[in-house]
Amino acid sequence: MNQPRQTPDLARITARAEGETPESRSSTISAAWDDLKRGFEQRELWLVLGWQDIKQRYRRSTLGPLWITIATGVMATALGLLYSLLFQQSLSEFLPHVALGLIIWGFIAGCIKEGSEVFIANEGLIKQLPSPLSVHVYRLVWKQFLFLLHNLVIWLALLAIFRPALGWNVLLIVPAMALILVNGVWVSMLFGIIATRFRDVAPLLDSLVQLAFYMTPIVWTTKTLHAQGGQVAQRARLAEINPLYHYLEIVRAPMIGEDVAAYHWWIVLGFTALGLLLALLAMRQWRFRVSYWV
Rank of each mutant, 00 (worst) to 15 (best):
A99L: 05
S61N: 11
W51T: 13
K127M: 05
S134G: 00
K55D: 07
H97V: 00
I112R: 02
R57E: 14
F94S: 03
W105V: 04
V98A: 05
L100N: 09
L91Q: 04
L140M: 03
M75R: 12
D35R: 08
P96W: 06
Q52F: 12
D53K: 09
L95E: 03
V118S: 06
L81R: 02
L91K: 01
E123D: 15
L146S: 13
A76M: 08
L82Y: 15
I68V: 15
V141A: 07
L95M: 10
R60S: 13
K55L: 13
S90Q: 13
I68H: 05
N151H: 02
K127D: 01
W105D: 02
S61D: 10
K127C: 01
N151R: 12
L140Q: 04
E44K: 14
A99Q: 03
F40A: 12
L149W: 02
I68K: 07
I112T: 10
P65D: 06
D34N: 14
S131V: 15
K113G: 04
Q128R: 10
K113D: 14
L91G: 01
G39K: 12
A109N: 09
G64L: 08
L148F: 14
A31N: 07
S26E: 15
L66E: 01
S84N: 09
D53E: 13
P130C: 09
E114F: 11
R59K: 15
K37P: 02
K113R: 15
L133A: 03
L100G: 04
I29N: 07
R139W: 03
W51P: 00
Q128F: 05
L81T: 05
V137W: 00
G110M: 01
E114C: 00
R59I: 10
R43S: 10
Q144G: 00
S61T: 14
I104V: 15
F94L: 04
I126P: 00
L63N: 06
L36H: 11
K127A: 09
C111E: 06
G115I: 11
N122A: 11
L82S: 11
I103P: 01
V48Q: 14
P130W: 10
